Amino acid sequence: MTTEVYLVRHGETMFNQLNKVQGWCDSPLTVKGINDLKRTANALSQVHFDNMYSSDLKRAIDTVHLMKNYNQVSTIGKIRKLPEFREVFFGSFEGDDIDQTWQAVANAAGLAPTNNVVKIINQVGIYKFREATKKADPRHLAENKEELDQRMERAIAVLHQLTLDERRVLLVSHGDFIKTLGIKYWNESDGIHDIPFPDNGSISRGIIHSDGSFEIVDYNMNAAEIVI
């Protein structure tokens, strides 16, 4: 049996507004974030889910509970929190100014000074960008490509086992982690180059096949694009 997975990015947070690096560190949802999520929740209110899951970070947990409360056709019990679907870890840069962080990463990648993360990725590629982030981190704790690949594969394996008897589930995760899943599993990605960063409250739709393989078939949809 295949399982349809609605991957929702959490709503906007205080750190998003303040332009701070937010990986495993956390901050509360903003009023705008909550209002944006209500539009997503309304769009999904008539979609039946056999279960709902989330990352174990609070911004994701708050988001999944809002989705649960707005849904009118699903009976959801206790929500399982999955640390495998946490955001990408940025090590010592957690909570720092984003622009200063990208400047440090550009320097580690051997590029001219810039705080434009898209420019950095376009010049060196997403995988070298991950390596440069780890190199720039004074403690070298930030996740690199190999560590992220291993965690993504573990995340899909865990979700596959949890959803063996479930046809459709909702899972709240994070922007950079969903994007990295998209690079690896989206059928419109070449698996190498960068893709657009998913919006807060956006929906990406994936399929877990009976053999445990995974693919993303829709990426970064907003509430208006959801067709029941």
Rank of each mutant, 00 (worst) to 15 (best):
M1S: 11
V5E: 12
Y6V: 03
L7D: 04
V8H: 02
R9E: 07
N16M: 09
K20C: 14
K20G: 13
V21K: 06
V21G: 13
W24K: 10
S27G: 08
P28R: 08
T30W: 07
K32I: 11
G33N: 10
L37D: 10
R39N: 15
A43D: 10
L44S: 07
V47S: 04
Y53T: 07
S54Q: 11
L57E: 09
K58R: 13
T63D: 06
T63L: 01
H65V: 08
L66A: 02
N69W: 12
V73I: 13
R80D: 15
L82W: 05
L82D: 04
P83V: 01
R86K: 14
E87C: 11
S92I: 03
G95I: 11
G95S: 12
D96I: 00
D99V: 08
V105P: 10
A108I: 07
L111M: 15
L111P: 01
P113G: 05
V117P: 02
K119W: 12
I121C: 01
N122M: 03
N122V: 01
V124G: 00
I126S: 08
Y127E: 14
R130M: 14
E131C: 00
D137Q: 06
R139Y: 09
L141E: 15
E146K: 13
E146M: 06
D149K: 05
D149Y: 09
R151H: 02
M152Q: 14
I156C: 00
L159A: 02
H160Q: 08
T163W: 10
R167T: 12
K179L: 14
L181G: 05
L181E: 06
I183W: 09
W186I: 03
N187R: 13
H193I: 01
D194R: 06
P196F: 07
F197N: 14
S204A: 13
R205K: 15
G206N: 05
G206W: 04
I207G: 00
I208C: 02
D211M: 05
D211Y: 03
S213A: 06
E215W: 00
N220F: 07
E225F: 01
I226D: 07
V227P: 00
V227S: 12
I228L: 15
